[in-house]
């Protein structure tokens, strides 16, 4: 079998059909590079799974109320300013061409076409 690179995570999670699971296991016995890949992926998986469970700061059975979206938005904007982040203004009446170029490019590159096959060009 060719290197089952895309199947390693599913193998690790026991998410392959039994036949595929066995085939990948078999391959791993003889392939040091896939075994090393698996080890790396497994380490990352362990780290993420080992992240602490965050406790909700409010009781889990809250007296239901409307979400505090507006308050949260304001507090994040304030936090963002505190660490020097730029917060996009809600109302933009000036069309900044660099921003538009970025938005256009972002959409162009997800589909095939003459610009995406040769690689996009930076800037406008």
């Amino acid at each position: 079998m060719t290197h089952p690179i895309d199947l390693l995570s599913a193998f690790l999670d026991g998410e392959l059909a039994p036949a595929d699971q066995a085939e990948v296991a078999n391959h791993l016995h003889g392939c040091a590079s896939c075994a090393a890949d698996l080890e790396g992926i497994s380490r990352v998986r362990d780290w993420i799974r080992g992240m602490p469970v965050e406790e909700a700061p409010i009781p889990l059975l809250p007296a239901l109320r409307q979400p505090r979206w507006a308050w949260a938005a304001a507090s994040i904007a304030a936090a963002a300013l505190a660490v020097g982040l730029v917060v996009t203004p809600a109302q933009t009446e000036v069309l900044d061409l660099d921003t538009l170029a970025g938005q256009h490019t972002a959409r162009v590159v997800v589909s095939p076409g003459i610009s995406s096959i040769r690689g996009p060009v930076v800037g406008r």
């Binding site: 490019t105 690689g119 996009p120 060009v121 930076v122 800037g123 406008r124």
Partner: peptide, 11 residues
Amino acid sequence: MSMVQGPDGGL
């Protein structure tokens, strides 16, 4: 992944 470099910056 792709990395693009030009005189105006990188992506």
